[in-house]
Amino acid sequence: MTLFGFDVGSRAAKCFNSDTGEVEIVDSHDWRSILPDGHEIISTGYFRKEVPNIFNLTEITAAIYGVSYLLDQEVDVILDIGGQDTKVIDTTTNEFRMNDRCSAGTGTFLEFIAGYLGLTLAEMGRLHFQAKCAAEINSTCSVFAHTEAISRLVEGHSKAEVVKGIHLAFARKIAQMMPPDSYTIALIGGTAKNPGVVDAFSNVLEAKIIVPENPQIVNAVGAVQYFMQKGL
């Protein structure tokens, strides 16, 4: 029987077939539409207990096992930027931190700003590299950053410069959560598909940023790996 890793987060549901490596991704509200019938499911993510499963685990542990399996090098820190929260996992001490009851430093923050600018997240990523400079955005509160973005546009900055400023503010916010001695960082979660965000992290953090080939499915892969490696 095939094992499936099934990760349902706050924004997207990801299904990973451990035999074929095939992946399906849908909006998290539609997770039932990609539920494999008659197979053994290892679930993770916020909705892990809602999904019919033979075993479930948190996405923090799944991320550790997923990164370890998918990357051919060890990292000091795993940075998982989700829709609702951001997790910083220190693989050297086994500790983790999460942002608290605030969308700053999460995918929701970028979605909020993208919505105001009338852009998709993919367009945000492309525009980032067209900016001649970065507009100064100091606040990481979604509401205040929104206000700052308006001010910068009024002052004559282009959308691209505002986008780059937003990405840098986003990276600076998350940098506050990073443990010292973070030299290699695995960046995972859907937000890691935005090259502008990756570039901002490279600028803000003095560290090597490694993004797995498909950063959104790391936790689904890790769920299966945990199950297999523990011999459950």
Binding site: E59, I60, T61, Q84, N94, R97
Partner: peptide
């Protein structure tokens, strides 16, 4: 091993906090 939980308004334990505690338990086990 140390985990910080911050709360605000009273309620039953929220899902985000439950997730953190469960992850903390998994980390203790590892």
């Amino acid at each position: 091993p140390f985990i910080t939980i911050e709360a605000d308004l009273p309620s039953k334990t929220p899902q985000q906090t439950r997730l953190r505690i469960e992850a903390f338990k998994e980390r203790l086990g590892d």
